[in-house]
Nucleic acid binder design. Structure first.
Lengths: 330, 330
DNA sequence: TTGAAAGCGCTAACAA
DNA sequence: TTGTTAGCGCTTTCAA
C-alpha cells in the first residue's frame, strides 16, 4: 500500500541505491535519472520511512523534554520554545512529565534510549551524572543547575533575588519576608540565598520572616496569612516564584491588607499568569522562552557534534515593575 | 557496545528466535531455557531495540497530540491527562503545536506518518476528513467537534453557555453582554449560540452587547473597556472563555467598577488560572483532564482494534460559582 | 520445543 | 554514474 523505496526504484527503472542517493543528495547521480526518480517519487507520493532510516542510522530525529509537570505554568513556555527550535531543525519532540520522581525519570530514559532518541533536555533535581553519561546520549540541563560537567542553561537566580529584595528596600520597605520554594530545588535555594545576602545584616532581620510555600499558590497563601497575623509590621514580601507571590497577594486581599500601599509583593519567574492578577504582579523575570530556545540550540549542536562555545550559561534576569510594589519611597 | 538480541542468544546458547519468544512471551519455550535466557538478559542488561521492533511491526508505541499552542493554559492540563494515560499504556507522547495553521498540521501529519505513529489526538478547526482518513492512522478529535464520522471528545458548550447566562439572570442581572471567541472556532460559536438561546427574546437584548475577544486577555480587556464606556447599564458579562473573563475583570478594575457588586462576570473552561485572580472567577468548568484522559483511552482502544461503544461523547460541564458573580438577587 | 532464514525499508560500502 | 549486496535488530513463518 504505502510505497517503499523499492517501488520507486522499479518504476523509475533504477536501483534502490540510486533512489537513496537522490533522496539523500549523496553521491553522484545523473541529472536525468535524478529528474526521473524525483518524478516517480511525486507520482507515487512516496515518503521515506523514518523508522527504517533510524534503524540503520541509529538515530531518530527526535529529542525529548523531561519536565516535572507541564501543568506548572513555567513549563509550557519552555516547552514551546524547545518545540519551536527543534521542529525547525526537523526534530520531533517527546514530552515527559516526571513529577520530580527519579524513578519516572529513569523509566523515561530507558524507553527513550530504546527509541534511539537523539538528545534530551532535562529539568531535574535528582538526576546524577553517572546515569546521564552512561546513557551516551547528548543531554542539556535546564533551569536547575545540577552538574557542572553537563551543558546547562539556567538563570541568575541568586542575583535576581538580590535585585528583588534591594528593590523592595529602595521603595522604602522596612521589613521584608521571604516565601521559600521547596528545599530540594536548587533554584529555590539560590533565591533564598540571594534574599539572605541582602537582608541578613539588617537590624530587623529575623529567621521568622522566612516561610515555606512549596512553589504553590495555596500553601503560600496559607502560610502568608499565618505570618501576616503574627507580624503585622511586614511591608514587603519576596516570593521565590510567581505562583507563591500570587498566593501572598490573595492572602493580603483576604486579610484586607492593601497591596501595594501597605504591603509590596514581588515574585520570580515572569510567567504569563503574573499579568493576570489585579494588581498585576511585580516580578523578577527569567527569559523563559529564551532559555528553552537556547537549550534546544545547544542540544542540536551537540547532536551534530559541533563544539559548544559555552557549555554552561547563566542568563540575565530582569526586574519587571508592575503593580504589587509601591511606587516610591515615601 | 549496546547488546543486541544476538548477543543474548549467543551467550545463552540458543537462537535469536528463542530469545525473541521469551521477550514476547510468545510460542513455546522450555522453562529452563527461559530461565537461562532471562538470566543472560539481566547479566547483559539487555533491552530490546524499539526501532527494529517498529520496523517489523509497523507501529511505534508512540502517539501524538496536536494542539494549537501548549502555552494557552487550557492545553497543558489536557496534555498532562493524555500523557498520563498513554504512558501508563507504554506509549510515548509527541507534542506538536499547530498555531491553528493547517499547513503546520499537515506537516506534522506527514512526519508522524513516516514514523509509524500509532495514533493522533487532534485539536483543530480546519482539518478535513479526507486527509485524516487517508492517513490510515487512528485519530480522535478533542474539544472541537469537527467531523461526526471521527471519534470525538467534547463538552456541552452550548448548554454550558446557557447555564452561565441563566445563572447571571437568576442573580438579578438586567443586561448581560457576551465576549465572543474567534469566529473560526466551533466551541466559540456554540457558546455564543448558547448565550443567544437564553437572551435573544429579552426586551433589553441588542447585538451591541456582543463583542469579540479572540479568546485573549488583552483584546477582551480593551473591548470590554470600550463596551463599558458606551453602555454603563451592563451588569453582567458572559465571556466565551476564562482568559477573556480575566480581561473583562481587569477592564472593570481599571474603570473602577466593582466586581461583583456592580458587575458580575462569568467565564468558561475552568482553567486553573481562573482561581488566581482576585476576586476568583466564577466559571463554567469543563472536565479538562477527563477530556484528555478519555480521548487517550479511546485512541488506545482504537489502536488495539477494540470497538468503541461511544465514538462521539459530549461531556457535562458544571457551574463553579466563585467570587466574580453577585451572591443573590437583590 | 527449538532453529534457520526471510524480510521489515533503508543506507553505504564496494564493484562494475 | 550506477547496481549489488550486506547489514541495522527484530519478529515470525516454516521445518525439524
Amino acid at each position: 500500500m504505502v510505497p517503499t523505496i523499492k517501488d520507486v526504484a522499479k518504476k523509475a527503472g533504477v536501483s534502490v541505491a540510486t533512489v537513496s542517493r537522490v533522496l539523500n543528495k549523496s553521491g553522484y547521480v545523473n541529472a536525468k535519472t535524478e529528474k526521473r526518480v524525483l518524478l516517480v517519487i511525486k507520482e507515487l507520493n512516496y515518503t521515506p520511512n523514518a523508522v527504517a532510516r533510524s534503524l540503520f542510522k541509529k538515530q531518530s530525529k527526535t529529542i525529548a523534554l523531561i519536565v516535572p509537570d507541564i501543568t506548572n505554568p513555567f513549563f509550557p513556555e519552555l516547552a514551546r520554545a524547545v518545540e519551536d527550535v527543534t521542529s525547525k531543525a526537523q526534530f520531533t519532540l517527546i514530552q515527559c512529565n516526571s513529577d520530580e520522581q527519579i524513578e519516572k525519570e529513569l523509566q523515561y530514559l530507558e524507553i527513550l534510549k530504546q527509541k534511539y532518541i537523539d538528545g534530551i533536555i532535562l529539568v531535574s533535581n535528582s538526576m546524577d551524572v553517572k546515569t546521564l553519561k552512561a546513557l551516551n546520549v547528548p543531554v542539556v540541563l535546564i533551569d536547575r543547575p545540577n552538574e557542572p560537567s553537563i551543558p546547562t542553561i539556567t538563570a541568575k537566580n541568586r542575583e535576581g533575588a538580590q535585585l528583588a529584595v534591594r528593590y523592595l528596600l529602595s521603595i522604602g520597605c522596612k521589613k521584608i519576608a521571604h516565601i521559600k520554594g521547596p528545599a530540594h530545588v536548587v533554584t529555590a535555594k539560590h533565591r533564598y540565598e540571594g534574599y539572605l545576602d541582602v537582608v541578613k545584616s539588617e537590624p530587623w532581620f529575623s529567621s521568622e520572616l522566612i516561610i515555606e510555600g512549596q512553589y504553590q499558590v495555596n500553601i503560600a497563601m496559607e502560610e502568608t496569612i499565618r505570618l501576616l497575623h503574627e507580624r503585622q509590621d511586614i511591608d514587603g514580601i519576596f516570593a521565590g516564584n510567581d505562583l507563591m507571590a500570587i498566593g501572598a497577594l490573595k492572602a493580603a486581599q483576604k486579610l484586607g491588607i492593601n497591596v501595594p500601599e501597605e504591603l509590596s509583593i514581588i515574585g520570580f519567574d515572569g510567567i504569563s499568569t503574573s499579568q493576570m492578577t489585579s494588581p498585576e504582579l511585580t516580578t523578577v523575570a527569567q527569559p523563559i522562552y529564551n532559555m528553552g530556545a537556547m537549550a534546544a540550540d545547544k542540544l542540536i549542536k551537540m547532536i551534530q557534534k559541533q563544539p559548544l562555545q559555552m557549555p554552561y550559561e547563566e542568563l540575565d534576569i530582569s526586574l519587571v515593575v508592575r503593580q504589587t510594589t509601591r511606587r516610591e519611597k515615601e
